[in-house]
Amino acid sequence: MSYTGPDLEPPQPRRSPLRRPLTVALAVLVPGALLGWGVYAATGGGGGTGAAPAAPASTAAASPAADRDDAKESGAGRPLAGKVVLVDPGHNPENYRHTTEINRQVDIGTHRKECDTTGTATDDGYAEAAFTLDVARRLRTLLQEQGATVRLTQDGDRPYGPCVDERARIGNEAKADAAISIHADGAGAGQRGFHVILPGPVHAGAADTRPIVASSRALGERVADRFAGVTGSAPADYLGDGTGLVTRTDLGGLNLSTVPKVFLECGNMRDSKDAALLTSGAWRQKAAQGISEGIVSFLRG
């Protein structure tokens, strides 16, 4: 935008010899245009009030295609523009109030198991479900800043669950480019560290992980590397042979997934030193940052 200072006057336009004929022509045309607009509005062409037509209301549940379109528009120019990430906060803070519902058996392909569990807690009573939801929300913010569309399986908005089979289905229906389930372990005191759980090859019933085993491992390796780098935590010293990577075939959230997915056990809530980290808001922010960097690294290739 140009600016005219206080001691300067803008240049005056030269008068055109055609100015008078143009003025007369406009004097003739404008009343006719105004009359035409009045007829248009009176017959409903202007929406009845002369206001611009209202935009259509959004649907309650966006489709996967809509998720991707939103991601492309809102994240243009950012590394995860057009990507969809499924974040699954393990358990639910209200599960303990609904023991009948969460004990219901569901099919995970290889066998049947409980819909969900209450999860573990620190010795001081800080629940795993509260931890996972907090980290998930922090992670969502970080991923959205990178341009991703983020879907949570629950956001403290459900009375319990969802069940493990539904958690997988939410990621599948979203056609997520990456999915991660956030947890904290309940191992014995003195056992420390994080580990990432990878899906093993399963082909039974509704479960077929064969197409996602390799991509899930790649995701898990990136997450483990960046989680360790950002948080300073070491891989678990009680399983995984010091790699921080464990393969399992008994988890419904992995068995039923058709998109690259891993579980992350961020630490051991039953160990006092790990618990001190897990209960720290500053450390949880580091955890979210490490997970985010791992996902970004995986999705950028």
Rank of each mutant, 00 (worst) to 15 (best):
K261R: 15
V28R: 00
T23G: 07
V84A: 02
A42S: 14
A148Q: 06
V24E: 01
R140T: 14
A228R: 15
V39A: 12
G267W: 05
R210G: 01
E173S: 07
L219R: 12
P201W: 01
A187E: 14
T4N: 05
K83E: 03
S215I: 00
W37V: 15
V259Y: 04
S215H: 09
L277S: 13
A51G: 10
V164Y: 06
H183S: 13
F131C: 08
V87P: 00
E166S: 05
L239F: 07
A130C: 00
D185W: 11
V259T: 12
M1G: 13
A288I: 06
A218T: 13
I182D: 10
I102H: 05
V106E: 11
K72H: 06
A41G: 12
N172M: 03
P56Q: 05
T149H: 11
A234T: 14
G45I: 07
A76W: 03
G119S: 15
V246N: 11
A129H: 10
G77S: 09
G161E: 08
E166T: 15
N103H: 12
R226W: 05
A60L: 11
A55W: 06
P235C: 09
A54V: 13
T23R: 13
R137Q: 14
P13W: 02
E101C: 02
S58H: 05
A127K: 15
A41Q: 10
Y96T: 09
D271P: 03
D107P: 04
Y126H: 10
Q12M: 00
R14D: 02
H98D: 05
H195M: 12
T141N: 01
S216P: 00
D208W: 06
V230K: 04
E101D: 14
V223W: 11
T247W: 04
P93I: 10
G90F: 04
P260F: 14
G205R: 12
K113E: 14
A174C: 03
R169Y: 02
R270K: 15
N103T: 14
H111L: 04
K273R: 15
N92K: 05
V259H: 07
G38V: 07
P235E: 11
D134P: 04
V230L: 07
R140E: 12
P64T: 03
A52K: 14
G125R: 01
D107W: 02
V85A: 07
L198W: 09
G75H: 12
G252P: 10
T122V: 05
A81I: 07
L277Y: 14
E128W: 05
G5Y: 07
A25S: 08
G75K: 12
R158W: 00
L18G: 03
V213D: 01
S215C: 01
A236G: 04
L251C: 08
